[in-house]
Amino acid sequence: MNRKEIALEVASILVKHLVPPPSEEVIEKIAAELILLVEKAGELEKPASRLAVCTVIGRNHSGIVHAFSEVLAENNVDIVDINQTIVHGNFAMMMVIDPTNSKVDFQSLKSLLKERGQRENVGVFLQYEDLMRELNRI
C-alpha cells in the first residue's frame, strides 16, 4: 500500500465512524488534506542523495578508467557523470558518483580507491560534493 492509498484508507475510516455521514465535498477535502500531509512527511523521510566527487590525477596509461570504475562497480556505487582532461601534462579524471547504495561506508570506499590509486601510481581524492558546490556559487 503506498502513501496515497493509506491516506484514502484513513479518510474512509473517518467517514465510516462519523454520524451522520458528511457530505461528499467534506470527504474530498479530508482526503486531499491527508494526502498532502503524508506526501510532505514522505519527502522528509527520503534520505537526500548526497553525491560525491572522485578525482584521479597522474600519468595517463591504459586501463586507468577501468581500474577505478571497477572499484566503484564492485561496491555498487553509481557513476553519475565522468569527465577527463589534461592539466599541466597530467591526466585528470573527475567522476561524480552516488554512494547512497554503496556496499561499504564512505571512509572504506575512500581507502579502497586510494589503495587502487597506489597500484596505478596516481593520486586519488574522494570527497562529498559540498565544497565543489559551494565554493564558486553564491
Binding site: 553525491l51 566527487v53 578525482t55 590525477i57 553519475v80 557523470d81 569527465n83 582532461t85 592539466v87 585528470a92 573527475m94 561524480v96 593520486g123 581524492f125 570527497q127 560534493e129 565544497l131 565543489m132 558546490r133 565554493l135 564558486n136
Partner: peptide, 17 residues
C-alpha cells in the same frame, strides 16, 4: 557535468598544493 572541471580541480589544488 554537474560541476565544471575548474570547480573540481580548484578544490583539489587548494588542499593539496
Amino acid at each position: 557535468m554537474s560541476y565544471t572541471r575548474r570547480e573540481i580541480l580548484e578544490v583539489i589544488r587548494m588542499s593539496e598544493t
